[in-house]
Computed example of a mutant assay.
Amino acid sequence: MGKLIVWNIASVDGYFEGTEPWDLSMHETVWGDELEALSIAQQEDAEGLIFGRRTYEGMAAHWTRQTGTIADAMNSLPKYVVSDTLTEADWNNTKIISGDIVSAIADLKRAATRNFYVFGSADLLSTLLAAGLVDEYRLGIAPLLLGRGNPLFKPSDERIDLKLLKSQPLMNGGIVLYYGVGNASA
């Protein structure tokens, strides 16, 4: 059975993008050789990638125009986009998941031999976290206070316990935190 691992970059004050959609300029403050190596390792470990619709559309628009090791993996890996409105998915090797997404993703995890990764997709993550489907959270902290923007974690009535598995300081002042999610299930 595969795990569902979330990878996001956020500011110290908890925003994963600025006030405008796809304002990810803070990523430049932590990107470097260390995060490139982490990205490649995660791709080599991936059974597939899971996105919400908005993240999928932005990722597809970006990665289909890129070249190199990371772009090659992003474009060739199996991808699943969660959407009740999307009718076509043109990015190579993509399937649409709609309806009972919790059961569909639980089924994917059970059948997997490697791990699934979710990038971005904050709205989707609130559903997956509440359903207990997230096994691990990898959070890259950019060394800045953004002040405002789109918060990484949506308000919830439920407490979710995390267990620190590892921390990786980065040479550029950022840090990657690896957390196990206390209430994960299949």
Rank of each mutant, 00 (worst) to 15 (best):
V6D: 03
W7P: 13
N8D: 11
N8Y: 06
A10P: 10
G14Y: 05
Y15C: 03
E17T: 06
T19M: 15
D23Q: 14
L24R: 12
H27D: 07
H27I: 02
T29D: 14
V30F: 14
W31T: 03
G32R: 05
E36V: 08
E36N: 13
A37V: 09
A37K: 15
S39F: 00
A41F: 10
Q42N: 09
Q42I: 06
Q43Y: 15
E44F: 05
D45L: 06
D45E: 10
A46D: 07
L49A: 04
I50A: 01
F51E: 01
G52I: 04
G58I: 09
W63N: 04
T64L: 04
M74H: 11
M74D: 05
M74K: 14
V81F: 01
V82T: 09
S83N: 02
L86R: 10
T87S: 11
E88T: 03
A89T: 09
D90Q: 15
I96V: 03
I97D: 11
G99R: 04
D100Q: 11
D100R: 09
I101C: 13
I101L: 14
V102P: 15
A106S: 02
D107M: 13
L108Q: 12
R110Q: 08
F116M: 09
S121H: 04
S121D: 06
L124H: 11
S126K: 11
T127E: 01
L129D: 07
G132D: 05
E136M: 07
G140T: 13
I141L: 15
A142E: 08
L145Q: 05
G147P: 07
L152K: 12
L152T: 01
D157Q: 11
D157G: 14
K163W: 12
S167M: 14
Q168H: 08
Q168M: 04
G173T: 08
G173H: 02
G174F: 00
V176R: 11
L177K: 12
G180F: 06
G180H: 05
V181Y: 09
G182Y: 01
N183L: 06
